[in-house]
Design a protein around this nucleic acid. Structure first.
Lengths: 229, 229
DNA sequence: AGGAAGCCGTACCGTACGTTACGGTTCGGT
DNA sequence: ACCGAACCGTAACGTACGGTACGGCTTCCT
């Protein structure tokens, strides 16, 4: 079930490009994982080990040596993709109403871009399929790097906004979930189910702005002074 | 690919319990479809024809005679489940602010109950898996009976609310999508990905009320008079 | 009673795919 | 030049599963 050999980097205990335990993929391994991502998008569910080997011009034996089994390959792929989505720095300069709004818009637009990308759709489909077969924890990993990752990055912004007297809420988590809902709405489920919904840059920008405005209507303080009790 | 014999009811052209073309399942067939639903929830992805036959105490030959192929069985199952979710009449009496709020809360609570039910989760997972393998249109069917069905039923309510001067919006679809987002938030994706999120009756009622309040904050008219231009 | 139809249980077939094994090639180290 | 390790391409194996065939049982019609 669980791959025993969290893929080892050829030389067993040699400090390669990264921590020897967390296991950063080598360039060649990354190429394989990219092939997996590409196949997921093109071929959908028919993601066979043979197809991966052919696409990546490597042997199946190598796949198994590096990743243990099919599940290990999938897990490594999810983590590989997650490792390069860490976008957006959102420099916490001093917050005013305008910069807060901009930050929220950026978050919203970035999130919409991610969930509407073919890569994310394919990855989520695979993870959901696996969650159904209650094998491995692919679903958790995707959740951790998607929904919960963005939550962890947005919540500090919300709390800074509150500290600056720009937002009002008791429960940060609840406020974040509202934002999440206003931004995502029905987009993700429709895309996952194969609806032909198209999101261009213009629509994303527009929707992100609209969601941000709605969020600020619900949680923004019209009186921008810190609580002068 | 497409099952040729949209399941026929034993006696070819005899008017059974329903239209001979739309094909309402017989009691026995319904029992089989219930077995499929039960297996989906318990066994997840390993939904094999043999397992269905064993669970339903019928032969695989019968399954194929009735439903054509595996896809036909799945499609029939989705439609069978959809056929009995048609809940909520929402009698359009005269609308005031209070009854509108109640209607919206009912919609929200009902929708949350549906998407958090094991049946819905299992069904959506299967549909998403199929959408990935670009075979059949299971995803579309689920979408049609889920997201779009509730839209079709809620939009008239919203428009009545607008006609009564209780709501203000230009785009009914946009208003509905906002409501959808406020209610669903991250619930569906988390459940689909296997997160251990529990929604009891109390939480559903609370969340439905909160989402409704937020929606009314965004779209409600504080001045409840019809447009007295 | 006799026959036909529907259906259950099971055996069977073909294929797809995960996994393993193996021969041949490249390449770095000595 | 030689050795061994890593790796590629491919063949082979075992199994799971979709789909089919068949024998026997029940039911219903005449």
């Amino acid at each position: 079930m669980v791959s025993a050999t969290k893929f080892s980097a050829t030389k067993s205990s040699a400090p390669e490009t990264a921590a020897p335990d967390a296991a950063e993929p080598t360039a060649r391994q990354a190429a394989v994982l990219d092939a997996v991502l590409a196949l997921m998008q093109e071929k959908g569910g028919q993601l066979t080990m043979t197809a991966v080997a052919r696409r990546a011009s490597c042997s199946k034996e190598t796949l198994y040596k590096w990743f243990g089994d099919r599940d290990g390959l999938l897990t490594a792929t999810v983590q590989w993709q997650a490792s390069r989505v860490r976008a957006g720095r959102y420099d916490r300069q001093r917050l005013d109403a305008s910069s807060l709004r901009d930050s929220l818009r950026d978050f919203a637009a970035n999130w919409l871009s991610v969930i509407s990308s073919p890569t994310s759709i394919a990855l989520n489909r695979v993870a959901i399929t696996h969650a159904a077969s209650q094998q491995s924890n692919l679903g958790q990993i995707v959740l951790e790097n998607g929904r919960f990752a963005i939550g962890g990055r947005l919540k500090p912004v919300l709390e800074e906004g509150r500290a600056a007297g720009l937002l009002a809420f008791d429960d940060t988590e609840a406020a974040f979930r509202t934002f999440f809902g206003l931004v995502g709405r029905d987009v993700q489920i429709r895309l996952l189910l194969g609806d032909g919904l198209k999101l261009g840059k213009a629509e994303i920008a527009r929707d992100a702005a609209a969601a941000t405005d709605q969020f600020l209507t619900l949680y923004g303080r019209t009186d921008p002074k810190p609580a002068a009790a």
